[in-house]
Design a protein around this nucleic acid. Structure first.
Length: 830
RNA sequence: GGGCGCGUAGCUCAGUGGGAGAGCGCUCGCUUCACACGCGAGAGGUCGCUGGUUCGAAACCAGCCGCGCCCACCA
């Protein structure tokens, strides 16, 4: 057996065993209450595993493995998302490299091409999740464009249409001129930019200000505030729009601010969301001067055909001295999240979904605790967003996706799961926003709208784990759709995890070149280490990636491996004896606390403490102390030591398995006796009878004593191998293990100590020993006296403070008194 | 403009009312018969600043400085 754990040798073999064993694919039986289920946030079908997947995959896998090991049927639904815009864009780019436009192929051939592409790239992320150790149900994979899933999506559309929640309207939308499609409000990001603010004189009395002079070609009014004395006389009159020659009525509207610019607002209902609203209020015509291609339309007259930006310069030039002022102006500009293009607000015929009626029960479900969102800050975000929700533009001008189930013939409209009978019907060419179909994920993946066994067994799911960037896009919409169509919440806990940033604090992104590939980490450190590191980094707030944490995970795996080697190479598998010594009782008690801590941390979704707590137990208690203390008994064949070691090892492997499944599974297979896979085993139950405060106190003192003696040794430059003769001030159960660990030898009392070391177990006298420099010991004694005197003065000061004695809790004061006494005794001993 | 969060050791982060912590890095020592991805011992911190509450503040409150994120239709 090699002395170092090599994940590469182990992980692929173990991963295959798990998948082949069928444990990831539970029978659809039992009730959702007794089962445990999670629907994975579906990655894009052509995507590759990134840091977010790796972290969230680790989190979910911990939960799935934990609950499976507690005897629950655990189903982690696997699947991918067709990701309309993203996938279509990839294929368009591929075609463009071959000089082909999608229009050349036509819709049907293009969609077939996208299918080919998804089949080609679709299996990648599944293999990557397997490498991470994710125990997803790979045997029951879903895709948001599967036949069954499509039926669910169309049914939802038709039902909502019939219920009047989905409607078609000419309305101002966020138009992405790059992708040539509308996008929803959530797909728009604002960027701060400095542009030029132009003041343009429309008449002697009317001067308007705008950063987009080209839109003036579409002006249909000038507005002033109704209370603005300066312009009251103008209301009801008209001004002539320069360049165009259209008469603009001067209207009064509350929206106008009197303290901005001149207090005259140009109104362009066709190209500004605010102006659109004003236009609706006042019955103004909306003139579209910028088209869906981002170029000026025929309505722009002589400027037709120019891009909006070109038109801006041309309009400014044509206006000549009517431009009375230019000044730099910093404002927010909308950009498309998807393409990075500047959003062009324009009026378009689109499908919308009314959300207020759906939002109310979704708010209620969180308010009354049927859904718990943590952390609390995300719960608030969720509620506040839903309370202010607006209609959702659900149609996209794409080819890849769920085509809207609506057909037109003249003025006739047919919405249904099947095409209408008769000739001459034409189907709406648009597809649905990808998030429309994702919103059905937790139940559509289980077979809804059919009443399937899977749905009865696993819905509602238990946990939804995600990053906060899709809380609105996805999570809130799942709740709304779930409640509307299944009558149940789709999940009970929403855990919003941190975002792992690049080490320099920037966002991890491929385009910035700041991304770190989790597969590289798995390659270098192993999947266990990667999982451990990501979990240890995780938190409820953003954290910077630190490779050291991954390395820490590799050390834990290696440590467990070597500790297991020590035990398995020396312990008698047949040993069967109860704990015999204080250290046996101590390690069992500490293990019990580690088990309790782990359970609490899972319960609290505190994965960082879960991982680091395991590390602390394995290093700080099991290996650094128990294994070192027990070694002589291990080598001597002490049955109690052997039995305790095997018991502790077995339970530690089980406890650590959800976090570091590979190494624990591998070591489990080396334990004596016939046993199945650890992944399919039961978590050792809590055993409160093992908690032993006396043993913990005794070992706590012993450990502190060993440390004091070691520190003393270092301070006098004693050789590490030198066994120093000493005299303890008393005999306790731990005094011999103290000698062993500190390399002391207890001598008969009587000789005069050359030095005294104060410890929690009393003063320990040091006798003259060959190779020990007593002069150094003497200097050390003086330093120690200084330290004790300082601490005593501090404690005395505190206890001399009347306020402290009178107002602090009794236990705190008593503890301070005890400490003072102990310090005085130590000083006395010196 | 509104809201949320953060500022603790060189780095990444725990700690949220009673003696400043972890991992990594650094220094010194160790071929201790599981592990040098190891073992042992150390150095290193006016806990962003200023006030306040309290017997006691890194923690609670207020203000300020710095950083980040989210939401928002003001030309």
């Amino acid at each position: 057996m090699q002395t170092r754990y090599e994940p590469r040798d182990v992980e692929s073999r173990i991963a295959r065993r798990w998948v082949d064993s069928g444990i990831n694919h539970p029978e659809p039986a039992g009730s959702p209450a007794e089962n445990f289920s999670i629907a994975v946030p579906p990655p894009n079908v052509t995507g590759a595993l990134h840091m977010g997947h790796a972290l969230n995959g680790s989190i979910q896998d911990v939960l799935v493995r934990w609950h499976r090991m507690h005897g629950r049927r655990a189903k982690w639904v696997f699947g991918t998302d067709h990701a309309g815009i993203a996938t279509q864009k990839q294929v368009e780019q591929k075609l463009a490299r071959a000089g082909v436009a999608k229009e050349d192929l036509g819709r049907e051939a293009f969609v077939e091409e996208v299918w080919r592409w998804t089949r080609e790239h679709g299996g990648i992320i599944q293999e990557q999740f397997k490498r991470l150790g994710a125990s997803l149900d790979y045997d029951d994979e879903r895709f948001t464009l599967d036949d069954g899933y499509v039926r669910a999506v169309l049914k939802v559309f038709v039902d909502l249409y019939e219920q009047g929640l989905i409607y078609r309207d000419h309305y101002m939308v966020n138009w992405d001129p790059g992708l040539r499609t509308a996008v929803s409000d959530l797909e728009v990001e604002e960027r701060e930019e400095t542009d030029t603010l132009y003041s343009i004189r429309y008449s002697d009395e009317v001067v308007v200000a705008t950063v987009r002079p080209e839109t003036m070609l579409g002006d249909t009014a000038v507005a002033v505030h109704p209370d603005d004395e300066r312009y009251r006389h103008l209301v009801g009159t008209a001004v002539m729009l320069p360049l165009v020659g259209r008469e603009l009525p001067v209207i009064a509207d509350d929206y106008v601010r009197t303290d901005f610019g001149t207090g005259n607002l140009k109104v362009t209902p066709g190209h500004d969301p605010n102006d659109f609203e004003i236009g609706r209020r006042h019955g103004l015509e909306a003139v579209t001067v910028i088209g869906e291609d981002g170029r000026m339309t025929a309505a722009a007259g002589e400027f037709a055909g120019l891009t909006a930006l070109e038109a801006r310069a041309a309009v400014v030039q044509a206006l000549g001295d009517r431009v009375v002022k230019t000044e730099p102006y910093t404002h927010n500009v909308p950009y498309s999240h998807r393409s990075g293009e500047r959003i062009e607000p324009l009026i378009s015929l689109q499908w919308f979904m009314r959300m207020d009626e759906l939002a109310r029960p979704a708010i209620e479900a969180v308010r009354d605790g049927r859904i718990r969102i943590r952390p609390e800050s995300q719960r608030r975000r969720y509620v506040e967003w839903l309370e202010a929700i607006r209609p959702w533009c659900i149609s996209r001008q794409l080819w890849w996706g769920h085509q809207i189930p609506v057909w037109y013939r003249g003025d006739e409209v047919h919405c249904g799961l099947e095409p209408p009978d008769g000739e001459g019907w034409e189907r709406d060419p648009d597809v649905l926003d990808t998030w429309f179909s994702s919103a059905l994920w937790p139940f559509a993946t289980l077979g809804w709208p059919q009443d399937t066994a899977a749905l009865r067994a696993f819905h509602p799911t238990d946990v939804l784990s995600t990053a906060r960037d899709i809380l609105f896009l996805w999570v809130a919409r799942m709740v709304m759709m779930g409640l509307r169509f299944t009558g149940e919440v789709p999940f009970e806990d929403v855990y919003v995890h941190s975002v792992i940033q690049a080490p320099d604090g920037r966002r991890m992104s491929k385009s910035l070149g700041t991304g770190i590939d989790p597969l590289d980490l798995i390659e270098q450190y192993g999947a266990d280490a990667t999982r451990f590191g990501l979990l240890a980094m995780s938190s409820t707030q953003d954290v910077r990636f630190s490779e050291e944490k991954i390395a820490q995970g590799a050390q834990l795996a290696n440590k467990l491996y070597n500790a297991s080697r020590l035990i398995l190479m020396n312990a008698d598998p047949a040993a069967d004896a109860p704990p015999a010594t204080v250290e046996d009782r101590w390690i069992l008690s500490r293990l019990e606390r580690a088990k309790r801590d782990a359970a609490e941390r899972i319960e609290a979704f505190d994965f960082a403490k879960l991982a680091l707590g395991l590390y602390d137990f394995v290093f700080g208690e099991l290996c650094d102390w128990y294994l070192e203390i027990v070694k002589p008994r291990l080598y001597d064949g002490d049955p109690a030591a052997h039995a305790t070691l095997l018991r502790v090892l077995e339970e530690t492997l089980a406890l650590a398995h959800p976090v570091i499944p590979f190494v624990t599974e591998e070591l489990w297979s080396m334990l004596p006796g016939e046993r199945g896979m650890l992944a399919a085993s039961r978590m050792p139950p809590a055993d409160p009878s093992r908690v032993d405060p006396e043993a913990e106190a005794a070992l706590g003192d012993a450990i502190a004593t060993v440390r004091a003696l070691r520190t003393w040794r270092e301070s006098v430059d004693a050789r590490p191998g030198l066994h120093i003769r000493g005299v303890p001030s008393g005999a306790g159960a731990t005094i011999d293990l103290v000698a062993q660990m500190a390399r002391f030898e207890w001598a008969e009392d009587g000789a005069e100590p050359v030095a005294v070391v104060p410890t929690p177990l009393g003063a320990i006298g040091v006798l003259a020993t060959d190779g020990l420099d007593v002069g150094a010991a003497e200097r050390k004694r003086a330093e120690e006296r200084d330290r004790l005197e300082r601490e005593i003065a501090r404690a005395e000061g505190k206890l001399g403070n009347e306020g402290f004695v009178a107002k602090a809790p009794g236990a705190v004061v008593a503890a301070e008194r005890d400490k003072l006494e102990r310090l005085r005794a130590e000083l006395e001993a010196l």
